[in-house]
Simulated assay, not measured.
Amino acid sequence: MDKLPKIALPVVFAFIVVVILISKSAVTIDSGQAGVLYRTFGGGVVTDEPPLGEGFNLVAPWNSVTIYEVRQQEVFEKMNVLSSNGLDIKLDASIWFEPVRQELGKLHQEKGEDYVQRVLLPAIRSAARSVVGRYTPEQLYSSKRDAIQHEIFEESKKIVQNQYVQLNDILVRDVTLPATIKEAIERKLKQEQESLEYEFRLVTAQKEAEKVRIEAQGKADANLILSASLNDRILQDKGIDATIKLSESPNSKVIVIGSGESGLPIILGNQ
């Protein structure tokens, strides 16, 4: 077997070194991610350039890249806060957020990869304590949940607006009151509902009674007007009109004119 040429060994060694360098230099960034470059001999974290984008990237082997997800993300948080009268309230919330892509280098340098625990969640907890402390348990349980959600979101945005984090929304999923307080509120709401129903029935009955009274008064007034307008001549005219109509009926046989009271006709011989 022939010996390898003297040049072959250095070539093989150089090839191995190149392969190692390429493998160390190649950085692949997935969809929805971005990379923060750290230059070992060039000032550390790069903050004055856009982060590395998706796909294949080459960096010097002595540098490093930290990859962040830059899509909208969701984190769930359970908090214990106090109402305006000092009662313990449990609040479950979903937080939608994403890092500010163009400020990713500063976020990495100043806050680090665990920025959610260092920046975002403390801001949410602080805002939740401040907002919930303005309301009573009754308000939290019934009509004010949407208002509380909006206020927590707005106050949290103010806290994180200069922290390189974009807060998209906060959804209050559940508000849990102490069991005794919840039962008391439910009893009170039930009593209020029953009271409203009773008042409604009472008003309806009063309106119906007023309607009947008005109808009766109208009939009485009509009868008075009719009685005042009747006299013998009108009654005779009415009788004559009725006689004419009856005479046209096939059942009428004999009509005696002027034989009844007040000279009204008498009808005889009906079949």
Rank of each mutant, 00 (worst) to 15 (best):
D48M: 01
H150W: 08
V100Y: 03
Y141V: 09
K157Q: 11
K78M: 14
V160R: 03
Q163L: 09
K90N: 15
S94N: 11
V65T: 05
G44T: 11
G32D: 07
G53W: 00
Q72E: 15
I95N: 02
A60P: 10
T47L: 04
S130Q: 15
N168C: 04
Q33N: 12
E110N: 10
R101F: 05
V131P: 00
A34E: 07
V132T: 11
A127K: 02
T136R: 03
G133V: 13
S84K: 04
S83A: 06
V81G: 00
L82G: 14
L87C: 09
V70F: 07
Y164E: 00
E74G: 02
E155L: 09
D114R: 04
P137N: 04
A34S: 05
G112L: 11
V100D: 06
L104T: 00
G53H: 14
I152S: 08
Q139A: 12
E151S: 05
Q163G: 10
D146R: 14
K78L: 12
T66R: 02
L91R: 04
V165W: 02
E151K: 04
E155G: 03
Q109P: 07
V165G: 01
W62Y: 08
W62Q: 10
Q33R: 04
Q102D: 11
K106I: 15
A93M: 12
V45Y: 04
S130P: 03
D146V: 15
E138H: 03
Q166F: 09
E54L: 10
A60S: 15
S143V: 08
I29Q: 02
D30Q: 07
Q166A: 15
K157H: 07
M79L: 13
A34L: 05
E151D: 10
F153V: 03
N162E: 14
F41V: 06
Y164L: 02
W96Y: 15
T47I: 12
F41G: 13
K111R: 14
S94W: 04
G53V: 01
A128T: 11
Q149S: 09
Q102E: 13
K157N: 07
S84N: 09
Q33W: 04
T40R: 03
N168D: 11
Q73T: 09
K158S: 08
I29V: 02
A34H: 02
D146I: 14
Q33F: 07
E74D: 14
Q102F: 00
G32S: 01
Y135P: 07
V100A: 01
F153W: 15
T66Q: 11
F97L: 05
A123K: 06
M79V: 15
Q72G: 07
P61M: 10
P61F: 09
K78N: 10
P137V: 00
R134V: 11
Y115I: 02
Y135C: 06
G53T: 04
Y38F: 10
E155W: 06
F41R: 11
N63S: 06
L37G: 06
K111A: 15
Y68S: 01
E74I: 11
Q149P: 06
P51S: 00
G105H: 01
S126E: 13
E138Y: 10
E77F: 01
N162K: 09
Y141H: 09
I148R: 08
F56W: 10
L37Y: 00
V59E: 03
G32E: 07
Q102W: 02
D114M: 03
L37D: 01
V131I: 10
L58T: 10
A60Q: 08
V81T: 00
L104M: 08
S84P: 08
